[in-house]
């Protein structure tokens, strides 16, 4: 690890001030991914600005009936919060499906959103990787990509975003509050993350020096039922191979509305808009759920070793929707 300076501001303003627009300065949240990446040599900031005492760390109801979750809220606190469990159980489930109890006690909401891919090539600095070192190539395409993207990937990158929480936030349509040298703005999920295109080194739309300060959840939809489910190799403490977050509103056997996101299939938490469109107004039956899944996955471009993820995503999506429809 390269020697670095460490600052721990107590307000967001101080954090922004300490950072400016330097790319040599990085914000430190829980450190569960950043410290690891620094040890691996993947990133080597000259300065760390620890924002865990600066970023808001409370969960508050908004006037509109939603929730504002401070970016400094630890994942463990988020999943345990009564307002989250009551209004957004799917979000609590997604958070609890991620990592381990220890890591959830450390990781912050902001840091969780900004974690990097766990692609083996990205994490190994002795190998090429367009995301880590633009222009060096992507060995995953010809190498091992069993756990990598089936949707939205490019010639230059087939990485997936590893967060479970972000999948739930994408389905919920959360708003990400950002502050930076250029002022404050709001980014709606899933718009925070970007597809790799020919700039896979850019995971998100954030500009240098910008800091996530909060995530705002819209009010729970009356009659909406939600669920997060994750298929994985190990029973616990392992990344998703495919995950599904879905909110379903059924009225008289017909889908009134739905919001669906898939995880571990793309460079971003993948909002399944084609499936949503196919389902709105359709009968809430397994056949229709299957048709909707097919509509979404028609765009899938699996690689030889992750072809199974198409069937897995389809089955998992159908099952989650069917369970939600049955639970009425």
């Amino acid at each position: 690890m390269r020697p670095f300076a460490y600052h721990r501001p107590s307000t967001v303003a101080e954090a922004l001030e300490a950072t400016g627009t330097s790319t040599d300065v990085m914000y430190l949240g829980g450190g569960t991914n950043l410290i690891d990446l620094m040890r691996l040599g993947v990133v080597s900031p000259g300065t760390l600005v620890d924002v865990t005492r600066a970023a808001p760390a409370t969960v508050e109801e908004t006037p509109g009936g939603g929730l504002r979750v401070g970016a400094g809220v630890r994942n463990g606190d988020l999943a345990a919060h009564p307002l989250v469990r009551r209004g957004y159980p799917m979000l609590a489930e997604a958070v609890l499906a991620g990592a381990s109890g220890q890591l959830r006690n450390m990781a912050t909401v902001g840091g969780n959103l900004l974690q990097r891919t766990r692609c083996a090539y990205f994490q190994d600095v002795s190998k090429p990787c367009n995301k880590r070192s633009p222009g060096t190539g992507c060995p995953a395409r010809a190498g091992d990509h069993r756990n990598l993207a089936i949707l939205g990937h490019s010639d230059s990158c087939v990485a997936t975003h590893p967060s479970d929480m972000a999948v739930a936030l994408a389905a919920l349509g959360a708003q990400v509050h950002v502050e930076g040298p250029g002022g404050a703005h709001v980014v709606p999920m899933p718009g925070l993350h970007r597809l790799p295109g020919d700039e896979p080194d850019r995971d998100t739309v954030l500009a240098p020096g910008e800091l996530i300060t909060a995530v705002e959840l819209p009010p729970p939809r009356p009659g909406g039922r939600s669920r997060f489910r994750k298929a994985r190799d190990r029973a616990s403490f392992s990344f998703a191979v495919v995950s599904v977050a879905a909110v379903l509103e059924v009225d008289g056997g017909v889908v009134r509305d739905c919001r669906i996101a898939l995880g571990a299939v793309a460079h971003v938490p993948w909002r399944a808009e084609a499936a949503e469109t196919a389902l709105r107004g359709a009968p809430a039956t397994e056949e229709e759920f299957g048709r909707a899944a097919d509509a979404e996955l028609a765009a899938a471009r699996p690689l030889p070793l992750n072809r199974f993820k198409v069937a897995l995503a389809r089955n998992l999506l159908v099952r989650v929707l069917a369970d939600l429809a049955e639970a009425r």
Partner: peptide, 25 residues
């Protein structure tokens, strides 16, 4: 342990990628 043909090493060389049974298994 996954042998990477291009580079010639075991690619999944950590405990997040090389899974051993955990308590829930």
């Amino acid at each position: 342990s996954i042998m990477d043909r291009e580079f010639g090493d075991y690619l999944n060389h950590d405990l997040a990628q090389y899974h051993i049974a955990g308590c829930a298994d």
